[in-house]
Design a protein around this nucleic acid. Structure first.
Lengths: 240, 240, 240, 240
DNA sequence: CATGAATGAGACTTCATTCAT
DNA sequence: AATGAATGAAGTCTCATTCAT
């Protein structure tokens, strides 16, 4: 009886494992590199596995030997890219400097990495991450929320440290402050992408932080005391 | 340019293809309306002419009677949508109020219109506007730059007026200030879309402007005049 | 708020409806006819939509205009074939004749229809109906069990009538009797298919029923009545 | 023919491809064992060399070191399986018992072996044996006819012995009697497979033979003489 | 001998678009 | 003007099979 069951058991068909040797790792890297290019240039839908294979001079089938499908490849591309950004921030962040200086480093790093190649990927994330799948599983989406979290984590931590030591105002939710930083940054990037304008990364990063800082800063002590002085003077004059 | 009043920024010159007449105009409006829905829900690539026709209960071929193709329809949809936003801002803007109040109106209107239906369209613009065409001509892109210009014009003018009358700091390029306003706004919208979080539009608009205002204001205007006051007071006291 | 929900509601993408005109019906019939041929010749896996289209001299895409996919087409082919057999039986069955005569009609009709074209389809049903899908839904299987039920219904009813009026032994489950009839019939068919031997349908049907009948009949009915006859005769002779 | 002892009916003549040696033979056995599992579970088309290799933990290429291709492997699998059944029958058959008892042994053995693992293989044979090859040569088919002959040989011999000694009616071609036995048996098996019903092998074998026996048996002598009596009586009455 | 790696060939399916009616 | 019907072109993905190492 058990044997009958065996014969009719529901087995998922096996999935060919992707190779794992040294050459294989290189292949994976190559495909990811070119895949990043193509996805960045064309977006998810317009990117084709054919083009990725052609640019590498390999067979399309080879792509599918290393990645289960177009979607998985795209996820890996995005994941890797996020990892690079996160690593760049975490590695270079001058943790001993003031919050403002660290912030400037972050903005600068983001702008730089995005503009080197990431703009298309940024668009990819923004436009693909939102699409709810028809099966309701929001395939991309769920993973994206997590990536987004990791991606913004360094900034969140920085802002939290700033609030803790008084450099950043504490009366505003972190999430809103994050939008205040990332928002303009991304908007600047979109301008670059759409209008094709070139910008000076150093200057832009510096200017943007300078502009944002007053909104982030804890209100100035001097300013507060001067305001107090003014109002007292006003009162005194009124008494005369 | 004469016909540009409604939504023709993205339109090709008058086509023999498009029928004329009252019934025809209604058809065009219907298709645009449903096309907007579908493009917003699915994005450009995933939207199908089949679905648009089916929702209207008409034949797919009919869509092609009124629009040269999917791309043209999409352009018209986007153009119309921009026009609506621009009209909403221009109509309702309280031009006599302070710059800050006008700014709040703008932010509020944007958030409102985007959240009613525009998020999908916003994504549409952002993700389709940038794609390299195979012929390299960036078909969408060129028209988008112009749309973007018209779309942000009201804000640009407002900020310019603010700079002129001293309510807004004048030492920063308008373009950067614009990013400072639109950027966080759009970032907030993306959070709504991706994470599915609901927000209170009134409160969000108010909070965001409150947060931005210190950064838009002349930076040390208050501080400088107060310092001046203090030093004059100090001098006067010394004379006594 | 409702509007936001709308914009992100989960809509299944629309499926193009198959055309419904007079020409369309002919197309459907053509595709079903050729599909039957190809599925019968090659089995499900080896049959290709390409071949079906080529034999009809139409584009592959046209096939998918009328049928959602290969699987649906196959189901329709099988369903239609079952319907034909059922109709042939129900139409021609001489309901007033003895159960044995009706049984012979059924066997004859089955053999005839299978041998005209059905052998491949029979194999198709037998071999495809069994495969459990990986998703566990047993796509084919569920529908097949029902088809099988309808297909064998006429025989089941006939045997039940026979049991009711005493022509068929009542001490055996109907299901087993069914296997007793269909089994040898199908086995004969397999011989024809595999070995390519030709048979005389009329003779085969008659012989098979003649062979089966003693097994279907009330086991000792004839014998008992004859014994009775003999003993009565013996008594009568003794009286003379 | 010399090498046919084990399972080589379907085998091509000795191949330079196939390695020799003790280790090699074990490999061949392993692949055949797992190949049988996989072909039985999935059918020919859905079985993949990948899965066979993975289940063995060997490389896909290794399979091709020992077998010229998927088709050859499948043929060997089927051939081996036939051989097992034949051996089981020939070994266990109680040749001294009555024909009826021997028949019951055969039916029981068949049901048992099929249900242990053979259902899938049975389906495999039935559905693959018939497919037209593109070159029209019916590659499988020819070999299958021979297998089928060997496979049914024990039953044929048994029935022939029965006819010779009067236990089985002699007025029916052996081939038809064979269908009468195998047919219902296979039909019962299909029901088990398709509907997933479980059966009691012992009881089923016994019941089926009990049911068939009246049809196989040489007609009763008593019955024959009574029939004669009846017809003579009828004639006598007609004369009165 | 075993295998890691690559691939040619071909499968099903989708969809914007055309055209005769 | 509207559409029913057809399709070319393209896309993703699978798999048996080969070959150098």
């Amino acid at each position: 009886m058990a044997a009958v069951t065996t014969a009719t058991t529901l087995n998922a068909p096996p999935q060919r494992r992707s190779p794992a040797g040294a050459k294989a790792e290189q292949r994976v890297r190559d495909i990811l590199r070119v895949g990043r290019e193509v996805f960045a240039e064309r977006g998810y839908e317009r990117a084709t596995t054919t083009e990725i294979a052609q640019r590498l001079g390999i067979s399309e089938a080879t792509v599918f030997t290393y990645f289960r499908g177009k979607r998985e490849l795209c996820m890996r591309v995005i994941g890797d890219w996020y990892d690079e950004i996160i690593a760049a921030i975490e590695t270079g962040l001058p943790r001993k400097a003031s919050v403002r200086v660290q912030l400037e480093f972050m903005v600068h790093t983001h702008l730089r990495l995005f503009l080197i190649q990431g703009t298309g990927l940024c668009a990819l994330v923004l436009s693909e991450g939102r699409k709810k799948q028809d099966n309701g599983s929001q395939e991309f989406g769920d993973a994206f929320v997590e990536l987004q979290r990791r991606y913004t984590a360094p900034l969140m931590e920085l802002l939290a440290r700033g609030q803790a030591n008084g450099e950043v105002r504490g009366d505003i939710p972190l999430r809103l402050l994050r939008s205040l930083v990332f928002g303009p940054m991304e908007h600047i990037l979109w301008e670059v992408i759409i209008a094709g304008r070139q910008i000076d990364i150093d200057a832009s990063a510096h200017d943007l932080v300078a502009l944002l800082w007053p909104a982030l800063q804890a209100p100035d002590h001097e300013l507060l005391s001067l305001r107090q002085l003014r109002s007292e003077l006003g009162a005194a004059l009124a008494r005369l």
